[in-house]
């Protein structure tokens, strides 16, 4: 049984299609990063998992149960951190957790959870006085109540500082080691990369890429970015560099030349520059990152996703 199974799900709001014929499978026990820019349909998808929104077409199953018919049963077994939520201003942090414990008929100790999410000592304060990051921690704490089989976290790093985001990833890892499946969304790849077994990239309501982090890394190919400082460079030299096989891009700004190319072409690029009379002062190589790939998949101006078989595709930097 898959933890999450979405088959051909479509959600339309009037003329706007938020999610279009989406297929998505999250296996039990994995950490799945659900990536995409804001407005790609991530939250709509998650809202369909939670029965907050009903699909126009398609089937949505969570933990083997129908997302609409058996929504309460699903939420008994799942911990959820929603997006664009608000806390109850007048209740204290502890009262929030007590409410979650009571709702889930769990025996968890609210104080232990407060400690786990870094709110020790803040439990008796009105949650209305909490900062955005503290509210996020509190909601994460509520999601953790009752040792859920599945954690659904929508943009869990929202409002967290880098340290908070790191602690959140740590909790995701711990929960996964305990045996929980984790499904979380983000518009920032860096937050997903380190903890995810698999990543899916959503764009305009459809999954445009899905693979393990390593797989995606391979898909980036062997392209690197060379940043070369020279004493001088002219346009014809740049033309020569662009003409080299394996080079997809070459630009100059003052005495800094930026070249995107396959690893094997690096030496040739430097040689060509020297031959044309531009002496190389310094150079730096940077391997294309997943971030580049993510941007390439999700950038608006470029409708074609990069294809790993074609090294000449431009990879945005």
């Amino acid at each position: 049984m898959a933890a999450i199974e979405v088959r051909g799900a479509t959600k339309r709001y009037g003329d706007v299609t938020a999610v279009s014929d989406l297929d998505l499978t999250v296996e039990e026990g994995e950490v799945y990063g659900f990536l995409g820019p804001n407005g790609a349909g991530k939250s709509t998808t998650i809202n369909m998992l939670l029965d907050l929104v009903r699909p126009t077409a398609g089937e949505v199953r969570v933990l083997g149960r129908d997302a609409h018919e058996e929504s309460v049963a699903i939420r008994e077994l799942a911990g959820v951190l929603p997006e664009a939520f608000d806390i109850y201003d007048r209740l204290t942090g502890r009262q929030h957790l007590e409410f979650a414990v009571e709702s889930k008929e769990s025996r968890d100790d609210p104080d232990a959870i407060l400690e786990r999410v870094g709110l020790t000592g803040d439990g008796d304060r009105r949650a209305g006085d909490y900062s955005k990051g503290m509210r996020q921690r509190l909601a994460l704490g509520m999601a953790l109540v009752g040792e859920p089989e599945l954690l659904i976290l929508d943009e869990p790093s929202n409002g967290l500082d880098p340290n908070g985001a790191r602690e959140m990833r740590e909790i995701v890892r711990e929960e996964n080691e305990r045996g929980a499946t984790v499904f979380f969304s983000s518009h920032i790849l860096g937050q997903v990369e380190a903890v995810c077994d698999r990543v899916g990239i959503l764009r305009e309501g459809s999954l445009v890429a899905e693979d393990s982090v390593e797989g995606l890394r391979d898909a980036v190919g062997t392209e690197s970015t060379l940043t070369i400082t020279v004493d001088a460079v002219d346009d014809s030299t740049l033309e020569d560099v662009r003409a080299l096989s394996g080079v997809s891009r070459a630009e100059a700004e003052g005495t800094t030349v930026t070249v995107s190319c396959e690893d094997a072409a690096k030496t040739q690029v430097l040689g060509t520059l020297e031959e044309a009379g531009s002496s190389v002062v310094d150079f730096e190589t940077r391997e294309a990152s997943l971030e580049d790939l993510f941007l390439a998949y999700t950038r608006d101006e470029d409708d074609d996703a990069p294809d790993e078989s074609d090294g000449s595709e431009e990879v945005a930097t």
């Binding site: 939670l50 907050l52 929504s71 309460v72 049963a73 939420r75 008994e76 911990g79 959820v80 951190l81 929603p82 997006e83 664009a84 939520f85 608000d86 806390i87 109850y88 409410f99 979650a100 709702s103 889930k104 909601a139 509520m142 999601a143």
Partner: peptide, 14 residues
């Protein structure tokens, strides 16, 4: 309006 309903419905309530 505020979004606390989402927090409420993240728990097992119909």
């Amino acid at each position: 309006d505020s979004g606390s309903l989402k927090l409420l419905l993240s728990l097992p309530h119909s």
